[in-house]
Amino acid sequence: MAEERAINPWLKNGLELGPPILFFIAYLRLEDTTVTVGGTEYDGFIIATAAFVPILLATIAILWKLTGVISRIQVFTAIMVVFFGALTVWFNDPQFFKMKTTIVYAFFAAMLGIGLARGQSYLKFLMGDRLPMADEGWMIMTKRLALAFVAMGVANEVIWRTQSDRFWVTFETFVLPAFLFVVFMSQAPLIERFSLEEDESPDEET
Rank of each mutant, 00 (worst) to 15 (best):
G85P: 00
G18K: 03
L15Y: 01
T34H: 08
F181H: 13
F45L: 11
D32F: 13
E204C: 09
Y122M: 10
Y105E: 11
V154K: 00
F45P: 01
R161A: 12
I140V: 11
V89W: 05
A188Q: 11
L30A: 03
R72G: 11
W168E: 08
L11S: 08
V169W: 06
T59A: 07
S164I: 09
E41D: 12
D165S: 10
I21S: 04
Y27F: 12
L123H: 04
V154S: 00
T59F: 06
G113L: 05
V75T: 13
T77V: 13
Q187C: 06
F83N: 10
F108N: 02
E192H: 09
G38Y: 03
G68H: 05
G18I: 04
M152D: 00
G38D: 01
G39D: 06
S195M: 08
M127F: 15
G68Q: 02
W168G: 02
T67I: 00
L176I: 15
E4C: 10
I159C: 04
T142L: 04
R29A: 15
E157Y: 07
A26M: 14
D135H: 03
A106P: 02
L131T: 13
D93P: 02
A51M: 15
E3K: 14
I140E: 14
T77A: 14
L56F: 15
E204T: 08
K12W: 07
A178F: 11
A2E: 14
N13R: 15
R72F: 12
T36F: 10
L66H: 08
I70P: 03
A6N: 14
V154P: 00
R130M: 15
E198P: 14
G115W: 01
F194N: 02
E204P: 06
F45E: 06
V82P: 01
D135R: 03
M139P: 07
T173K: 00
V175Y: 09
T173R: 00
Y105A: 03
L11R: 09
I140K: 12
D43H: 09
V82G: 00
E197S: 13
T67V: 04
A110F: 11
R166V: 13
T59H: 07
V53T: 05
L30I: 07
V182S: 07
R161T: 10
L87R: 06
Q163D: 08
I159W: 05
D129N: 09
K65R: 15
I47Y: 01
L147M: 12
S164C: 03
L180E: 12
A178I: 08
S71V: 05
I140H: 10
F171C: 02
W138F: 08
D32K: 15
K98Q: 10
L56T: 15
W168Q: 11
E200P: 02
A155S: 07
Q163L: 09
S201I: 13
E197T: 08
A188W: 13
A58T: 15
F84E: 02
V75N: 11
M141A: 15
I46P: 00
E41N: 10
A106Q: 06
L63M: 06
T206Y: 14
P177D: 05
L190T: 09
D93W: 13
F76D: 08
S121A: 06
E172Q: 14
D93H: 12
V53Q: 03
F171E: 03
K98T: 06
I47F: 02
I140S: 09
